[in-house]
Amino acid sequence: MSEEPVVMTHNLQKIFKDFWRRPRARAVDGINLTLHKGEVYGLLGPNGSGKSTTIKVLLGLLHPDGGEVKVLGKPPRNVDVKRRVGYLPEESYLYPYLDARETLRFYATLFGLQGTSREKRIDELLEMVGLSHTGHRRVGEFSKGMARRIGLAQALINDPDLVILDEPTSGLDPLGTRQVKDIVTALAEKGKTVLLSSHLLADVEDVCERITILYGGKVQASGPIRDLLQVANHLQIRLKDLDETQRTHLLDTLEQQLGQRPTLEPTRKDLESFFLEVVAQARRESGEGSGTRAEGKLAGFLTEKKSESKGQSLDTNPAASSDI
């Protein structure tokens, strides 16, 4: 790809030191990452594998001890780079005494958003994450899932080009998880680059195109998810609406041709799809509950074309204007 990568690390090293500056733990050891525009990239690994440390280096919160890091073509501590980055931390680090709306307003103001455009964005984001009816409730009273949702909203307040999501579905119910995955997919369709760190493999598998698996701070596997998950010399044939006679005939034919009798298994839904169907059915029958309400649809300002938002942003909305 000729385009400059959105994120690039080369031989990234991070060593945590003790009080006497002696090495205590090598958290990241020679990681190479390249993320391109419009890509959803998964960073996988068990706890303590270096995912969050890598992300914090990308955000300029931790200093690398070796290697090279570039985010949007610049060093990560550059304040202008941070204007174009949205970050959802692993824990929802929020001010407990602020309400949801105040929280978003505060983060929006850090990006220079003002006036009605800011309030419109806040409304859209609250709607998107299903918290529009709890806008005046203190976030300290929120459940973990609700805190994740408001965290996601603050990560998108600046219409970022690069979205870094650290365990975005942690603490969410299956419905919320599905909505987050839909949002991630929609963001990528709009040309945003998403770096998603998680140890929930199903979530990553659903939305990521490429992944890197870390263990002990080192890259253990990396590449397109389809290639990595492919089982060599195993093929799958999918058919539907076969009666008993057709099935028997098919098996006999294949046995004659291939010299081995294949096994037949009915196709199963995954549990997530089944759960979502049941909840959707229940919702149709008994209406909305009192919890969060969202459809996983992207907020309006995130779906606007860049050229349109750029025209608006020159005088009122500096956070929306961004190019790689």
Binding site: K82, Y87, L110
Partner: peptide
């Protein structure tokens, strides 16, 4: 300690 400082410093704030 709470992480809010990190969350803010990930925004365009020196």
């Amino acid at each position: 300690r709470r992480g809010t400082a990190g969350a803010i410093l990930s925004k365009p704030v020196s």
